[in-house]
């Protein structure tokens, strides 16, 4: 019976997803030769990856951005959701404003931030300059590239916030009423009711953030360049796959990179699952 319900997805998987996935897997063991010939090269593409300095650089950059960016963005969007869940005037307006940045087309966002973070003309450094502080070089300084990218990503917390908001609606108000009768304060309510009840949503948000963060790259092309800027400080894994596929025409190699990414993401997601389940058990016991 359950299978009947998930049948649409299974059909879609078989018709639309299976072939591209299998094809990219096979491609990862090949190299394009002259004409339209495809040469089987075995594990060559995978071995090459582990010899490339850029491969490790891309992994490191992606990890740094994700490990700092994801937790902070999650906390910020959760706090925003909690605040905007409080009954107040203009609630809808505030929520909309927080969500606004997420609806700006990516091209516009990129160009906008390029201007905001401009070390000479941008509003941030102009402001810092006016109060006698020397602003950083932002995207022009390799040491500041990652902080800049992380700051930018905070502007887009509206999306995650919305999902947390939706999650908060599923917590029955009776729980809070009962807790208040027992004399629990707001902090206790947050810790013992809201957080545990939000766990499935938090898990969802975290996993999606990992998956997207590991693959994202388009904002970097707009903000920096195809190489990830000076010293390749912004060379993330998604960008490395992209340039190999569409600039250097190495489909086989980039497919291998993608499958390495898949393995890596899968492990990270499973670890996240484990972490969430364990921390859940502890709170229950």
């Amino acid at each position: 019976m359950g299978l009947l319900f998930i049948l649409p997805w299974i059909l879609g998987l078989l018709i639309f997803t299976l072939y591209p996935v299998v094809a990219s897997f096979i491609l990862s063991f090949t190299r394009t030769g002259e004409g339209s010939a495809i040469k089987w090269v075995g594990l060559d593409n995978y071995i090459t990856a582990f010899r490339e300095p850029d491969f490790f650089r891309a992994i490191l950059n992606t990890l740094i951005l994700s490990l700092i960016g994801i937790p902070v963005a999650q906390i910020m969007s959760l706090v925003a959701a909690l605040l905007l869940n409080v009954k107040m005037k203009f609630q809808g307006v505030f929520r909309t404003i927080f969500f606004l940045p997420s609806v700006v087309p990516a091209v516009a966002t990129g160009l906008l931030w390029k201007w905001i973070l401009n070390p000479r003309l941008g509003p941030i450094n102009t402001f810092l300059d006016s109060i006698g502080l020397a602003g950083p070089g932002w995207l022009a300084d390799p040491a500041w590239v990652k902080p800049s990218l992380i700051i930018m990503s905070f502007w887009g917390i509206g999306g995650t916030m919305v999902i947390y908001l939706a999650g908060l609606q599923n917590i029955p108000t009776e729980y809070y009423e009962a807790a208040k009768l027992d004399g629990a304060g707001s902090w206790a309510c947050l810790k013992y009711i809201t957080m545990p009840m939000l766990r499935p949503v938090t898990l969802f948000n975290t996993i999606m953030a990992i998956i997207t963060s590991f693959q994202s790259f388009s904002n970097i092309i707009i903000m920096l360049d195809m190489d990830g800027g000076m010293k390749k400080a912004g060379l993330v894994y998604g960008l490395y796959i992209y340039t190999n596929a569409f600039r250097d025409f190495k489909m086989g190699y980039s497919s291998a990179l993608a499958w390495i990414l898949l393995a890596f993401t899968f492990v990270s997601v499973m670890l996240t699952y484990k972490f969430f389940n364990r921390s859940g058990d502890q709170e229950v016991s």
């Binding site: 359950g2 299978l3 319900f5 596929a245 993608a258």
Partner: peptide, 30 residues
């Protein structure tokens, strides 16, 4: 609903596959 409500063999494996399909970047399946 199918994934949440029912119990059937290999359900979690199928769900892992579902998650897995999101993990392959579009650049190579395009």
């Amino acid at each position: 609903f199918g994934f949440s409500y029912f119990r059937f063999p290999k359900k979690e494996l199928l769900f892992k596959i579902l998650l897995g399909t999101m993990m392959l970047p579009a650049q190579v399946t395009m």
